[in-house]
């Protein structure tokens, strides 16, 4: 399960970021921030020759010693980033995919909420709940 989940707006500022409370929060902010460059690179590669690269799910962005960072970009250029622990080898690509899918569905619900202003930080409880379900449970 994830140790950090972030949603980043199309202008590259964070809409939502949540990490496991036990660890250094700032480190995750850096990790997510760094991943944006890779995301940018991956989307700009689309359109040039890569016909099969048009999926919303971007796959593994980059691995670090302790973490793996996965990315997803919606058609409205909103980015989702999920950071998982490298030691967690049981997590398959398909599971990550379905996590992103769930996240996207929930984000869509937030966007369609008339009380939400597009571009504002996400404060929805329903969204919070979905994210909590995907985070590592503190033991």
């Amino acid at each position: 399960m994830a140790v950090c989940i972030a949603v980043i707006a199309k202008e590259n500022y964070p809409l939502y970021i949540r990490s496991v409370p036990t660890q250094n929060e700032l480190k995750f902010h850096y990790t997510v921030h760094t991943s944006l460059d890779v995301v940018e690179e991956k989307i700009s590669a689309v359109g040039k020759a890569m016909a099969d690269q048009r999926e919303l799910y971007l796959g593994l962005l980059y691995p670090t010693e302790d973490y793996k960072v996965y990315g997803y970009v919606t058609n409205s250029k909103v980015k989702f980033v999920i950071v998982v622990d490298s030691s967690n080898t049981s997590l398959r690509d398909n599971e990550i995919r379905s996590m992103f899918r769930k996240l996207h569905n929930s984000f869509t619900d937030v966007m369609c909420n008339p009380f939400y202003n597009p571009g504002d930080p996400i404060q929805s409880k329903a969204f919070d709940g979905i994210v909590s379900g995907m985070m590592v449970q503190p033991s």
Binding site: R54, E55, T74, N75, T108, M111, C112
Partner: peptide
């Protein structure tokens, strides 16, 4: 946002 949820980029 809803319509493009399942479409390719």
């Amino acid at each position: 946002e809803r319509f493009t949820k399942d479409t390719a980029r």
